[in-house]
Amino acid sequence: MSLAVLMFIVLAIVLIGLLAWAVRPPKKLLLSVDDVFAALSEERHYARLPQILQSLREEDTEFLFGSGHAPLAGRLRAERKQIALQYLTYLEEEYQLLLEASRILAKLAPEVIPMDEFERFRRNVRFVLCCRYLRGRLRLGLPPWGAFGILSDMEGEMTLRLEMTTARLGERAALASESPLFLENRRGDSE
């Protein structure tokens, strides 16, 4: 059997595997438009980032070691590490919520830009990998500074992109309200 023929069989098996993965029901419950907007209005977890970063700094517990309270300092660091891990979980949830909002916007948008969508997908993969890396570092007791910065930057960029998209949608909506037949015509075209 030649390599090319073998590749065809492998490709077919890979496609069956991907199909099996893709048709599984999604893990999370689908959010409605109102759910997403309600969740967006709540207090965000990333607002706690400065305190988390501060608590993970070694200097913060140095004085306890210096004054002979090593066990207390160790316990404090372990507890703070747990808090940081919990924070990371919330951060991930928030990012997923923003992604969910961006998906809903994409569904509503009369046109989407493929490069933007690809970029968002790429960033999502990076964010998930970064979260796992950071979680691993925290569990191993390594300083997580750089990765935390990357994650908060990514979430910020996602928010900016959402704002740009909603601005575009807002413009279209304004146009539609000025000319009510506009959307009706588009809807008619799509049918």
Binding site: F37, L108, E163, T166, A167, G170, A173, S177, L183
Partner: peptide
């Protein structure tokens, strides 16, 4: 649609 867009915009802002 316009109402939601404006609402989302202000929250995102």
């Amino acid at each position: 649609y316009g109402e939601l867009s404006r609402e989302l915009n202000s929250r995102l802002h």
